[in-house]
Amino acid sequence: MKQLAALVLPPVILLGTTIALWGWMSAQGMIPNYLLPSPGKLAGALVGDRSVLLRHGLATTEEALSGYVIGSVLGLLAAVVLSFSRRLRACFFPLALATQAIPIIAVTPLIVLVMGRGMPAILTLVSITAFFPMLINMTRGLRVADRGYHELLHSLSASRLQRLAIVELPGAFPYLFAALRVAATACFINAIVGEWIGSNIGLGYLVVISGQYFKMPTLWAAIVVTAALTLILVGIVAVMERVMTPWAATEHGS
């Protein structure tokens, strides 16, 4: 309980101070209201526009989460396939790394052009952005297990699949969760980027429309909702990691 307070309290204090300062500066006219509304107005938009936010938020959540899951699962499967063949790895892995140099914003118009505006395009976009971090991380992760573990399984006459399930996959858990964390922070943002140009619904669309009509409180409310959704997902992944890797806690003597 004390630990939790120590974890939560400092950022809460900082956030509170920031909001208070921001409110004070808004009231003094130091921040132009057409750029950043006062905390009160923003809160008002969160409440007043809740049905709009809910509708668009749900659409974005659906795209972001499905893309996240689909991309991560496919990335994991691809990494497992690559782990079976050095030659395949030599072909695909450098290219997978190279994709990380391509900014997502540059690919989005292409995907929308090919798939048309709407959900499938956004889902594809988010899946791709979850796929590669998982593939890259797990291609490394599946190979980090101690050689002694492999020798043990070898002397027990384990099959290739048993080696994968008993040594390689559990050994790669830190890499798996690193990829899940990276993709969790990115998937809502990527969904929103996609919606800017590729959709008529979703928080990204709401941001664009609100901007065009100078509905700044709504625009900011959409941003706040996006941030909150991302934080929730990141939190869920962190809890999942704790639950699924109980031995990690014992290793650091905590």
Partner: peptide, 19 residues
């Protein structure tokens, strides 16, 4: 090995940390 006739206790007692 295929017939599981022997067991090896290796020099560095190997334990899988996640089990």
């Amino acid at each position: 090995r295929a017939e599981r006739r022997f067991a090896l206790v290796s020099q560095h007692a190997v334990m899988l940390p996640w089990r």
